[in-house]
Design a protein around this nucleic acid. Structure first.
Length: 273
DNA sequence: ACGCCTACCTGCTTGC
DNA sequence: TGCAAGCAGGTAGGCG
């Protein structure tokens, strides 16, 4: 399940492979992977452009292209990206291929077909990625990046206190905080010794500080370990190792590393917790 | 604004 | 053994 650390790892792996490469063609085998469902229009818009940068915002990859446009790629649950030579063995789960002028291909593989690829232009006025000039930015409603040095415990407190909900659904809400998914929400809450059902507004200042610190610590360690290779996640340059460090996620029944009692699973908003 | 539901998808596991 | 139900979960969109 690619969350912030997994997407960050993929961005870092792809960057040296893609920057400078020219797009020569587009193949689409499942048009619904494209936000517009229009593979022909995408090909028309992309061919001839060069990759200038590869980055990440929340759980999406952002591939900056020449001419002030950018591709966003959301991997959702089972999306994977690989750079291979054009003749590499075919795969029934590849949904989109960007053919590169140097004979390589960027392949988007996605078993469950939830992933989405979008093409946006950079608004010269605001610098935002938009569908059309003057429109709202794609990330206008996305919350702050938890690992951004400019994001402080003060910001976190202010956001927490303005919300009425419970901690777990709040951490998963991308407009509250960017990039946290089910794995790292559970890990951060456990590390901060806060119950997932606890109302966000009920936290004391020291609880808020602990949660802020643990969210960032868990995410930073996961980035350093190239993410958690669970189920379908792998990066272009290989698996991560964070799965070996997870304390509670998918560990129902195991003894709690803190108190030794069995870890219990509850369901919250149709998600295991 | 919040919580809850369903839809989108497929592969794997579980239970009868 | 075979088959169906259950489960995994990010996000959009709808409803109350």
């Amino acid at each position: 399940m690619p969350e912030l650390p997994e997407v960050e790892t993929i961005a870092r792996d792809l960057r040296p492979k893609l920057v400078g490469a020219e797009i020569a063609g587009v193949r689409s085998t499942w048009p619904r992977t494209l936000r517009t469902h229009d593979a022909e229009a995408l090909a028309d818009a992309l061919v001839g452009r060069t990759v200038e940068a590869v980055g990440r915002r929340a759980k999406q990859l952002v591939v900056e292209l020449s001419g002030d446009v950018a591709l966003t790629i959301h991997l959702k649950m089972t999306g994977q990206l690989f750079v291979v030579r054009a003749g590499a063995p075919d795969d029934p789960y590849v949904r989109l291929v960007l053919e590169l002028a140097d004979g390589r291909e960027l392949r988007f593989r996605d078993i469950r077909k939830f992933g989405k690829v979008g093409l946006y232009e950079r608004d010269p006025g605001t610098g935002d990625l938009v569908v059309e000039r003057g429109g709202a930015g794609v990330f206008a409603a996305t919350g702050p990046e938890p690992l951004d040095p400019a994001f402080t415990v003060r910001d976190f407190r202010r956001r927490l206190r303005s919300r009425r909900g419970r901690l777990k659904p709040l951490l998963l809400d991308q407009s509250f905080l960017a990039g946290v998914g089910n794995i790292y929400a559970d890990e951060a809450l456990w590390a901060a010794r806060l119950h997932p059902l606890r109302p966000a507004a009920s936290l004391r200042p020291r609880d808020e500080k602990r949660l802020f610190d643990e969210v960032r610590r868990v995410l930073a360690e996961a980035v350093q370990r190239r993410g958690s290779s669970i189920d379908d996640y792998t990066a272009p340059d290989g698996d991560g190792s964070m799965q070996d460090r997870l304390q509670v996620y998918q560990r129902t029944g195991d003894p709690c590393p803190r108190c030794g009692r069995p870890i219990r699973r509850i369901v919250l908003g149709a998600r295991s917790t």
